[in-house]
Computed example of a mutant assay.
Amino acid sequence: MFVKIYCYHIKSDNTEAYLTLQKEAAAIYRKYIDSETTYLQCKEEPTKWMEMTKYASEEEYNKKIVLINENQEINELYKTFTKLLVEEKSEVLEENYFIVRND
């Protein structure tokens, strides 16, 4: 399994808008690819969020993300997302992982 992790800071007063936006984005992603996303809000630093999305494989993700990125609606949602970020911490960190089972 392939996992994408994003870390970013959302303005405190934009939490509801953020969650609504993520729900809309997830619906678009599901049209193209099977995925499961978890959103984590940091207990000590409430503006800090982590988004973890699982995909069947990196190959499948790479094929489908091209189509997703061509979607006009997802591009508009991303523009809105960037407006929700804390300005001083507007960097979005992105990392790739594999789930390794040690059974």
Results as ranks from 00 to 15, higher is better:
Glu45Ile: 09
Glu16His: 09
Ile5Met: 11
Ile74Phe: 13
Glu44Cys: 06
Met1Lys: 05
Glu44Lys: 05
Leu19Trp: 02
Gln72Trp: 00
Thr38Glu: 14
Arg30Tyr: 06
Ala56Met: 00
Glu91Ile: 06
Glu16Met: 05
Lys48Met: 12
Asn75Lys: 08
Ser90Tyr: 10
Leu40Asp: 02
Glu60Asp: 10
Lys83Glu: 15
Ser12Met: 03
Thr38Tyr: 08
Glu70Thr: 08
Ser35Glu: 06
Lys23Leu: 11
Ala27Asp: 05
Thr82Trp: 01
Lys11Ile: 08
His9Leu: 03
His9Trp: 05
Glu76Asp: 15
Lys48His: 14
Met1Leu: 06
Asp34Thr: 06
His9Met: 04
Ile65Gln: 03
Asn102Met: 08
Arg30Cys: 11
Asp34Ser: 03
Asn14Asp: 10
Lys11Ser: 14
Ala56Ile: 06
Val3Pro: 05
Asn102Ile: 10
Leu19Lys: 12
Ala27Trp: 00
Lys4Arg: 11
Gln72Met: 08
Tyr55Leu: 01
Ser12Pro: 05
Glu70Leu: 08
Glu51Tyr: 07
Cys42Gln: 02
Glu76His: 12
Ala25Trp: 02
Glu45Phe: 08
Arg30Asn: 13
Leu21Asn: 07
Asn75Trp: 01
Ile68Ser: 10
Ala56Arg: 02
Met50Arg: 01
Met1Ala: 07
His9Thr: 11
Val66Trp: 08
Tyr55Trp: 04
Ser57Asn: 02
Lys54Asn: 05
Asp13Gln: 10
Asn69Met: 10
Tyr6Glu: 14
Phe2Glu: 04
Lys31Asn: 05
Thr37Gly: 03
Ser35Asn: 03
Leu85Phe: 08
Thr20Gln: 07
Glu44Ile: 02
Ser90Pro: 12
Asn102Phe: 13
Cys42Asn: 10
Asn75Ile: 07
Cys42Met: 00
Asn75Gly: 13
Pro46Val: 01
Ser57Phe: 04
Ala17Pro: 04
Glu76Arg: 14
Tyr18Trp: 13
Gln41Pro: 06
Phe81Asp: 14
Tyr18Lys: 14
